[in-house]
Design a protein around this nucleic acid. Structure first.
Lengths: 349, 349
DNA sequence: GTGAAAGCGCTAACAT
DNA sequence: ATGTTAGCGCTTTCAC
């Protein structure tokens, strides 16, 4: 039923090799022949079978992407970038969701390996040893995780945190709480250290958690943060930050008048939250595209090629954030309403 | 470099066919042989090349999914369902994003066709004729769109709208605005008609739009809705509804005291918006899984099999919705503050 | 410049 | 129950 190269050859009155060449190596056939073949192919609606081609060339023309969880709004943006860049490079993409499971992720790479030329791992959940074992199975590019001499696309978390601290410092904040995500997560370590190092003279960072990196985690974390003597809260990610905002609203704490809240990741819709959130935004779409670039160059370009692409983070201070507070002229020292709800002694402060 | 079936055969001291059988047809080889072969295969880390297998069997073991736009939070939930169900059935999945472009979508199906056993089209953007032409290329299952005798997974929009109207009627609402999405969208027609038909005696529906099915579209639509004499707004989707809520908040219109807002789709995070949104939720995860079921049965099961799976919608009335208003005892007739901002005559009311 | 033939990794007759 | 052979659709020597 499907049109094969044989069909085209027969219809065009040439051999299969000529058809193959006409389509793949234009300069190896006479122009007239090429035209005739191409015309015939189009007329019959011929589409080469890439699987068969891959069998002999060793290249499938496919890419694989594995994400920890599609319901995490963080990943679709990366996928979108991967998609568009892959299409541009004439690659099709396999997608898999490993359900936050490192072992499953490793298994998926194995399962994909034969059908793809390389795999992009987003925020890999593999343990270092699993990852080590997986490297070598196929070409690999990591997003949001750095390892050995493997090609990686990472975000300049340190830079982002520096921007965040500068921003908060300019608003007069001196004590910041960091709400941790999953303790052993590579991203959490990155962000935690980034923030700690960005803290300047006169600014202290209080690390709380770990918490679940979810809206609910934020709800929970907010109460603990309120118990601390801070005027700013930096959450592991935007999802948590939204939870924090929600809880703060319930407890009648004004944002940013009483407390500034910062998120990380810039998930879609974060800007729709009220009151608005300040976010250290990662460029997920660009990350996806960059990963495809690295992968493609690794696949084709011998052994050279870039190994590490670092994307800068952007501090997004949403419009109305500035409005309600009088932050600039009147730095938020309004810790009273925050602590008011806790009747514990001021110990530790 | 990769381990082939030849390698296993050699290592196990049997022929390739025996290896093939030992792995695929356990009952066709002696148990001892089978064990030996399987053990050898595992030891060498052999993984069959599915592309090569597909070349001869005609089955690839792959599924394709095409979505209009990955950045639309509506689709990842479907993808997640597809993923998990596909994995269970031992299928790998190709993903493509057609950027809301029907022609591109059709082209993607063609491009995938040879590498997959079937394709799932989510909210297809193809024109009827494009769709007609695409059918037959490969096995197809549609989600959120109904056509000919093609297998489809659809939502019981009519039922959902009935629930919505019942809900609003119980709260005392009599005049409802429907904010349309893209005019020619199949979903928009569905929802519009569903709502119109659900409207009972004494309840009128005011159709506005079309609007962009986005947060921004909602911002815009809200102002137009406020100019109408309605107490409830049903938006084409949750994204628009969030935009409406945001605009209403800016204009100091209280929800749901002054106006009730309903969305459709139940995108993740919709519940995090303040004030809370009432949503007619579609079961996207289940839809994805159902689509895989239909596709698999269509691929394997000759020509029989279910053709149409209809999933019920759920009305999600979020907890705090009830709190602020005194809706039950005091139906919202507070149209004054809504209209107050427009100084046009009451004409048309 | 073009055709004939070999073979990629695998399965499915067909032998034994 | 197992081995041998042909061939899936394609690219790529190798002849001509």
């Amino acid at each position: 039923m499907p049109v094969t190269i044989q069909d085209v050859a027969r219809a065009a009155g040439v051999s299969v090799s000529t058809v193959s060449r006409a389509l793949a190596a234009p300069e190896m056939v006479r122009e007239a022949t090429r035209l005739h073949v191409v015309e015939t192919a189009n007329r019959l609606g011929y589409r080469p079978n890439r699987a068969a081609r891959g069998l002999i060339t060793g290249k499938t023309g496919n890419l694989g992407v594995i994400v920890p969880d599609l319901s995490n709004p963080f990943f679709p943006a990366i996928l979108k970038g991967v998609q568009s860049q892959a299409r541009g490079a004439d690659y099709a993409v396999f997608l898999a969701d490993c359900d936050e499971n490192g072992a499953e992720e490793a298994a998926l790479v194995q399962a994909m390996a034969k059908q793809v030329d390389g795999v992009i791992l987003c925020s890999s959940r593999m343990s270092p040893s699993q990852l080590e074992r997986t490297i070598g199975t196929t070409s690999l590019v990591l997003i949001n995780r750095s390892v050995r001499d493997q090609p990686v696309v990472i975000m300049d978390v340190a830079g982002g945190m520096r921007q965040a601290v500068d921003h908060l410092a300019a608003l007069g904040h001196r004590r910041i709480a960091y709400l941790q995500g999953p303790r052993n997560s590579w991203s959490n370590q990155q962000r935690r250290r980034g923030l700690r190092r960005a803290a300047r003279r006169g600014i202290t960072v209080n690390e709380l958690g770990p918490f679940a990196p979810t809206f609910e985690g934020g709800l929970h974390a907010a109460d603990l943060a309120l118990a601390e003597d801070v005027t700013a809260i930096v959450a592991y990610n935007d999802l948590m930050a939204l939870g924090v905002l929600s809880r703060l609203a319930d407890r009648d704490v004004k944002v940013p008048a009483d407390v500034s809240v910062l998120g990380f990741d810039d998930i879609p819709m974060a800007g729709m939250a009220t009151p608005p959130l300040t976010t250290v935004a990662m460029q997920n779409g660009r990350a996806g595209r960059a990963a495809v670039d690295l992968l493609v160059s690794q696949i084709s370009g011998a052994d050279a090629g870039e190994l590490r692409r670092e994307l800068e983070c952007q501090l997004i201070v949403r419009a109305s954030t500035a409005t309600p507070g009088t932050a600039r002229s009147d730095p938020p020292h309004v810790t009273a309403p925050v602590r008011r709800r806790r009747d514990e002694p001021v110990a530790g402060a």
